[in-house]
Design a protein around this nucleic acid. Sequence first.
DNA 1: GGAATATTCAACCATATGGTTGAATATAGA
DNA 2: TCTATATTCAACCATATGGTTGAATATTCC
Lengths: 122, 122
Amino acid sequence: MVEYSEQALDRTFSALADPTRRAILGRLMSGEARVTEIAEPFEMSLNAVSKHVAVLERAGLVRRDVQGRVHQLSFEGAPILEAARWMEETRRFWEARLDALEAFLEKAKAKNTPPDEKETKS
Amino acid sequence: MVEYSEQALDRTFSALADPTRRAILGRLMSGEARVTEIAEPFEMSLNAVSKHVAVLERAGLVRRDVQGRVHQLSFEGAPILEAARWMEETRRFWEARLDALEAFLEKAKAKNTPPDEKETKS
DNA sequence: GGAATATTCAACCATATGGTTGAATATAGA
DNA sequence: TCTATATTCAACCATATGGTTGAATATTCC
């Protein structure tokens, strides 16, 4: 198992746990932007957006490049990579177990009484 | 772009944004367990752990199977898969941009004035 | 039935979060 | 220099979060 910084994961996941912040990241992925530009499409105040940006910056997901009075923001992917790796590992573990289960079900089915179908989430 | 349920992503990411809850998931990945068993290694009260489990359950990351007074908990991977997909998409976008940047740097280097080296994070 | 066990519910507390408004700061431009 | 612009800082508010303790509930076992 790879080692992860718990604090970094905390910051990354909680930064991602807000739709406004995910939208900001989405916006930044298609290119740099200033705080005011970022804030424009949202219904909330500029200050609220500024705070969201600060959260993203603290999590390392956004880089701020101050040029005079303008703050250029850009997307920074490294923490996502880290968190995604954590999730991948988790998921792989789970899938391995799931594969084992499926194999078992398959064998059971081949034998005689077919078990219940897998549920489908709505 | 695939569509994601914002609320589901909210719940998944904020459920993952806590080290205790990630540890609980880790524990559950190696097999089912009851609430008391889960709580045992933690310093906090059983009630606190019970609440964490409830959060994970609400996010769909944990399934609860009540057998008499015992609640058997098991890991449920689907939401992780969903969130991981979101991150993968995000990451791919970013990597594409990064690749473009690297290509640009490479070309610039080949020409004449080598631009600054990429910084390495501590 | 009565005691022990597994778990949640309820109330409470401290702190964090997401929003607001108004003022402060710093830079750009006439 | 004066004004407009870009942004943060500070104070405040409502609600959410993560923890506690004590009581309630349901189940098992003697």
